[in-house]
C-alpha cells in the first residue's frame, strides 16, 4: 500500500457484519486528496456496505477508518458527516415534500449559514436545472434531476470528501453521461475528492483516476481507471457488450 499516511481517506482491514453475516472481509483502500476513486463490483459485493461503514452505520467490527489522519471508526454517524465528509446516498433519498431550495438548504444545516447564498449559487451553477426548479417540490423532479439535487445537497456542507453511492442508478444513458461530466467538473474545478461506488463500471472507470474491484466483501483488483478498463477479467465480468 502506498502513502497511507498522506491519504485523505484510508480504510484498512475493515470487517463489517450484518448479524452473523460478514459483509466486508478485511477491506483496505485509500483515497488521496484531489482524486476520483471508484469502487466497482456486482450486486451484493459489499460496495454500499463499505460506503456506509465509512459513515459509521453500521460500524466496522474490526479494522480502522481514518479520515484526514484521524481515526473515525468509532465515531457516530452525525459526527463523521460533520467532519468534512458528505454523502449522496443510494437511491438519492431527497426530501420529496420539500422544495429544491429547501433540500439544498438541508444540506447546509450543519454548515456556517454565512455562506449559504454563495454555496447555493455554486450548486445552481453546476446544475442549472435545479435553479429553474428551485420552488418545485423534490418529489416532482425526474430521476436525473433528483440525482443532481442529491449531489448538490451533499456539496452544500462544503465537504472535503464526497461519497457517491450509485449515482447512475435507474437513469437513462444520456443523463448518466451528464451526471458523470458534472462529477468530473466538481473534481477539476473545486479539487473535490470523490469516492464513487458504481455498478456502471465503464463510465466510472473512464472518469476515475483509480479504481478498486470488489467481489463478495473483498477487494480483488486495483489499478488506474485505464488499467482496469483494459483488464481482461474486468472486461469479462463487468463490461460485457463494450460499454
Amino acid at each position: 500500500m502506498r502513502g497511507s499516511d498522506a491519504a485523505l481517506l484510508s480504510v484498512s482491514g475493515v470487517h463489517t457484519f450484518y448479524g452473523s453475516i460478514e459483509a466486508l472481509k478485511g477491506v483496505s483502500l485509500q483515497v488521496e486528496a484531489g482524486e476520483i476513486v471508484t469502487l466497482i463490483g456486482a450486486n451484493g459485493a459489499g460496495k454500499s456496505t463499505l460506503l456506509m461503514t465509512i459513515c459509521g452505520d453500521p460500524r466496522a467490527a474490526r479494522g480502522t477508518v481514518r479520515f484526514d489522519g484521524r481515526d473515525i471508526t468509532r465515531r457516530s454517524t452525525y459526527e463523521i458527516m460533520r467532519s468534512g465528509i458528505a454523502q449522496s446516498p443510494e437511491g438519492r433519498r431527497i426530501f420529496p415534500r420539500m422544495t429544491v431550495l429547501e433540500n439544498l438548504q438541508m444540506g447546509a444545516l450543519t454548515a456556517d449559514p454565512a455562506h449559504l447564498e454563495e454555496d447555493l449559487e455554486r450548486a445552481f451553477a453546476l446544475f442549472p436545472r435545479l435553479k429553474e426548479r428551485q420552488h418545485q417540490r423534490g418529489g416532482t423532479l425526474s430521476g436525473g434531476e433528483q440525482q443532481m439535487l442529491a449531489i448538490g445537497r451533499a456539496l452544500m456542507s462544503r465537504p472535503r470528501l464526497l461519497l457517491l453511492d450509485e449515482p447512475s442508478l435507474g437513469l437513462a444513458p444520456l443523463i448518466v453521461r451528464q451526471i458523470f461530466e458534472v462529477i468530473g467538473e466538481i473534481n477539476r474545478t473545486q479539487g473535490m475528492t470523490v469516492f464513487l461506488v458504481e455498478q456502471n463500471a465503464y463510465h466510472a472507470l473512464k472518469l476515475a483516476h483509480r479504481g478498486y474491484v470488489m467481489v463478495t466483501g473483498e477487494v480483488t483488483l486495483t489499478g488506474t481507471g485505464a488499467e482496469l478498463l483494459a483488464n481482461k477479467e474486468v472486461q469479462a465480468a463487468y463490461l460485457e457488450g463494450g460499454s
Binding site: 459513515c55 454517524t77 452525525y78 458527516m81 460533520r82 433519498r93 420539500m98 444545516l109
Partner: peptide, 14 residues
C-alpha cells in the same frame, strides 16, 4: 421535517 421525510438521508446530512 427532514426526519419525517427521510430518516436515512437525515442522518447522512450530519
Amino acid at each position: 421535517e427532514a426526519l419525517r421525510e427521510d430518516d436515512v438521508a437525515c442522518q447522512s446530512l450530519g
